[in-house]
Design a protein around this nucleic acid. Sequence first.
DNA 1: CTTAGTTAGATGCATACTACACATAAGGCA
DNA 2: TGCCTTATGTGTAGTATGCATCTAACTAAG
Lengths: 241, 241
Amino acid sequence: MTESEFLAEYDPAAYERPALAVDLVLLGLREGRLTALLLKREQHPHAGRWALPGGFVGIDQTLDAAAIQVLHEKAGIAGVHLEQLYTFGALARDPRMRIVSVAYLALLPEAALAEALERAPSLVAARIEVPWSGEAGGDVAALSPKGEVLPLAFDHADILAMAMLRLRGKLDYSDVGFALLPEHFTLRQLQDVHEAVLGTTLNKPAFRRRMLDRGWLAPTGLREAGTSFRPAELYRFQPSR
Amino acid sequence: MTESEFLAEYDPAAYERPALAVDLVLLGLREGRLTALLLKREQHPHAGRWALPGGFVGIDQTLDAAAIQVLHEKAGIAGVHLEQLYTFGALARDPRMRIVSVAYLALLPEAALAEALERAPSLVAARIEVPWSGEAGGDVAALSPKGEVLPLAFDHADILAMAMLRLRGKLDYSDVGFALLPEHFTLRQLQDVHEAVLGTTLNKPAFRRRMLDRGWLAPTGLREAGTSFRPAELYRFQPSR
DNA sequence: CTTAGTTAGATGCATACTACACATAAGGCA
DNA sequence: TGCCTTATGTGTAGTATGCATCTAACTAAG
């Protein structure tokens, strides 16, 4: 049997298939606080609860492409850090039908987050509160600006928790932290990102030294403007060849 | 509109769906070498190449359950460490049709690996050679006992590389290393596991201290038997409460 | 023009961790 | 009994980290 003969006999519709979707955790910093962008569900199921932006994966669309499409259509942005997180496949995740969802983590610098909120007015910025530290894992709360807990739809609380676990885990050995910053930034801003993500305070000189020794920071020679005190040097992220 | 009215109107067959599968990287140690279990494909497509054991995800089956089923049906084993790796969704991964595959990593102690080879005679033990170190990532070679490079089917070389990247990354901050050992083991065996996975040699006293200070090792009071020299203490993995 | 206030950036020191060399312990075996 | 081999323990040096403190650079108030 040749390969083309095999293909001719193969029946692609032999088994019923789960639907395949992507869900995006859009994370950024807003006023120094870790923030996720959520959509309030107007329709059943889970009407009135908050959900991660998502969409189905087209038959001729890669997973990454589906995630980029959601980023564009539901948040009006592009060009941000995007990485696959985990795939959620519990049987009753969605009461409509069997849907397996590939979760993605998108990291937005403050400007991209503001842009998304402007272009997609239905998005809501929810402050993220993580009551556990380090490797533990566990529940994560999404809070409205007034501090009310926003109930999440489907298993999106699990996805959000997984996003935080991953982000915290990767923060200090990888370069994801820079994905939350604009192109030029000060060491203080970098430290603020780390502190917001980790939910701790960090020692300034130690953090400084560690970051500079990494070899990822290129001084630009430029200075921060608009301060009433000594202006900080602006750095640029330089992937260490 | 109530939720049940909504569900009644929802058409689950509105869009064509990708097929969903799981593929398993079965990894273990054999004669001190890192080894993966592969199947030689007899049929098209990719006949004659080596593939990871896999299977389709049933419509009422979770992803984990599908992985466990593959472990049982294609390797005849159960109860080993199993974790989701990454989901591969390139368009032409499989020439038959669009198949999205959720890759899993299974870690087998030497006994489980031997059991799998016995119960599933079509499985082949391939030595894994990783030419990069640390965080780099890149190609990984599967070698026959005679040292010939085994060509892998589909995108399974990518999956294997991802498995090695993940395993190396997790090895020294998590407890995955113990998943490759029997219940009782010596510190030397633990070090052998780490050395085989990382592809390096490690300093013995330093490794020893680090592991003992972790608080994961409980001495059993038993000694290794059958050596012609000082027998080593046998330890047990004790998850740190 | 001077000084207070504020944050950036640098330095010194104590502590913890790790690599590495080397010493000692405990088995079998000739 | 002594030798060989590997397990296990100890000491030391170099490195990374936490923390206190010092100096620099800027604005604004007077």
